[in-house]
Simulated scan of single mutants.
Amino acid sequence: MAAEERIIFQPYVLKAGRKGVQRPEPVAPVVCRSAQDGLARADKITNGASASFVGAHVVRLVVDEEAGDYSDPEILAVAGIVPEIRE
C-alpha cells in the first residue's frame, strides 16, 4: 500500500480544569474527505456557526500504515480557542 494523505479535523470543547478555569480539551478527531472539507469545518467555528466546538486544528499527514510511517503534521488551519502547541 502506498502512502496516502490524511486531513484531520481536531475539534475542542471547553472543560473546567484546575481551580475551575476553563480550557480547551480535544474530542474525537474527524478524518476529512479533503483539505477543503477540513477548512470548511474550521470556517464554521471561526464564523460562530458551531454550537458544539470552541476551536479546532486542521492538519495534514502522510500515512503509510503498512510501513508504520507517519509524517509530521502540517497545520492547515487554526480556528477559535485551541490549546497552545509546544514544539
Results as ranks from 00 to 15, higher is better:
Met1Lys: 06
Ala3Tyr: 00
Ala3Val: 10
Glu5Thr: 15
Glu5Asp: 07
Arg6Pro: 00
Arg6His: 09
Ile8Val: 14
Phe9Tyr: 13
Gln10Ile: 04
Pro11Gly: 08
Pro11Gln: 07
Tyr12Asn: 02
Tyr12Asp: 06
Val13Leu: 04
Lys15Leu: 10
Lys15Met: 10
Ala16Asp: 15
Gly17Val: 15
Gly17Leu: 15
Gly17Ser: 14
Gly17Met: 14
Arg18Tyr: 10
Arg18Met: 14
Arg18Cys: 07
Lys19Met: 12
Gly20Phe: 15
Val21Tyr: 12
Val21Thr: 13
Val21Arg: 11
Val21Ala: 11
Arg23Tyr: 15
Pro24Asn: 11
Glu25Lys: 06
Glu25His: 11
Pro26Tyr: 07
Pro26Gly: 03
Pro26Asn: 08
Val27Gly: 06
Val27Thr: 13
Ala28Asn: 11
Pro29His: 05
Pro29Lys: 02
Val30Lys: 03
Val30His: 03
Val30Pro: 01
Val30Ala: 03
Val31Thr: 13
Cys32Gly: 08
Arg33Ala: 15
Ser34Cys: 08
Ser34Met: 10
Ala35Val: 10
Ala35Cys: 08
Ala35Gln: 12
Ala35His: 09
Gln36Pro: 04
Gln36Glu: 15
Gln36Ile: 12
Gln36Met: 14
Asp37Met: 10
Gly38Asp: 13
Leu39Asp: 09
Leu39Ile: 15
Ala42Leu: 11
Ala42Lys: 04
Asp43Val: 04
Asp43Lys: 07
Asp43Thr: 10
Lys44Glu: 13
Ile45Trp: 02
Thr46Gly: 02
Asn47Asp: 12
Asn47Phe: 06
Gly48Thr: 06
Phe53Leu: 11
Gly55Lys: 07
Ala56Thr: 10
Ala56Phe: 05
His57Met: 07
His57Ile: 07
His57Gly: 03
Leu61Glu: 07
Leu61Gln: 03
Leu61Thr: 05
Val62Asn: 01
Val62Met: 02
Asp64Glu: 11
Asp64Val: 11
Asp64Thr: 07
Glu66Ser: 05
Ala67Leu: 11
Gly68Thr: 14
Tyr70Ala: 04
Asp72Thr: 10
Asp72Gln: 06
Asp72His: 02
Pro73Ser: 04
Pro73His: 12
Pro73Ala: 14
Pro73Tyr: 15
Glu74Ala: 06
Ile75His: 05
Ala77Tyr: 05
Ala77Cys: 05
Val78Pro: 00
Ala79Arg: 01
Ala79Ile: 12
Gly80Asn: 06
Gly80Arg: 04
Gly80Leu: 09
Gly80Met: 07
Val82Trp: 01
Val82Cys: 00
Val82Gly: 00
Val82Met: 01
Val82Ala: 00
Pro83Asp: 03
Pro83Asn: 06
Pro83Glu: 05
Glu84Cys: 06
Glu84Trp: 04
Glu84Phe: 08
Glu84Thr: 15
Arg86Phe: 13
Glu87Ser: 04
Glu87Trp: 05
